[in-house]
Simulated scan of single mutants.
Amino acid sequence: MSTTHIGAALNASADLTPTERLLLVILGDYADTDGRAFPSVGRLAERANVSRRTAVRALRRLTVLNQVQQVRTLNGTTGINTHWVLTLGDEDGTAGTLA
């Protein structure tokens, strides 16, 4: 859990919907110090008490608004792993440790 990222999520852009802000806070709860979070979309939807489809829609908009970045990596024999990086509006689209 990164309280720094949770705080930044709470202070994020005012044009977020309540669902988008909640998902950003939940991602902040999962995030390591570099802003990387590894929950599944299903887990995010469950914690936010929304449908999976609503979570996908909100995550897609958060990506467009440069609040999060979706990273997919090949995982040898099991397929593709997806994780999220909280960028929270960084100009260059990278997160790193928030100051």
Rank of each mutant, 00 (worst) to 15 (best):
G79I: 09
V64K: 06
E20V: 02
T4V: 06
Q67P: 04
H83G: 02
R36P: 00
A12P: 01
R43A: 15
R53Y: 10
V85W: 00
E20L: 00
S13D: 15
V50W: 01
P18R: 10
T97N: 06
T82R: 09
G96W: 04
M1F: 05
P39E: 11
T63C: 06
T54K: 02
A48G: 05
D92M: 08
P18E: 14
G93A: 11
S13G: 13
R72M: 09
R60V: 01
M1W: 04
T19A: 12
A14Y: 07
V71E: 13
D92H: 14
R57S: 09
L59D: 00
V41T: 15
S13H: 06
R47H: 12
E46K: 06
T63N: 12
R60T: 08
A55F: 02
R21A: 07
N11A: 15
S13R: 15
T73C: 06
L16M: 10
I80D: 04
L62G: 04
T97P: 07
S2I: 03
T19W: 01
D34A: 14
L44Y: 03
R57D: 09
L27V: 07
G93W: 05
G76Y: 10
E20C: 03
G28W: 01
T94D: 13
G93V: 12
G76I: 05
G42V: 11
L23I: 12
N49Y: 05
T73W: 07
N75Y: 10
V56R: 05
A45H: 04
V71R: 14
Q69K: 15
N75W: 02
L24Q: 06
Q67S: 13
D34R: 09
N49W: 03
N66I: 07
G28A: 07
E46I: 02
R21M: 06
R21I: 08
A99S: 14
L62W: 00
W84N: 10
T73H: 08
L22F: 00
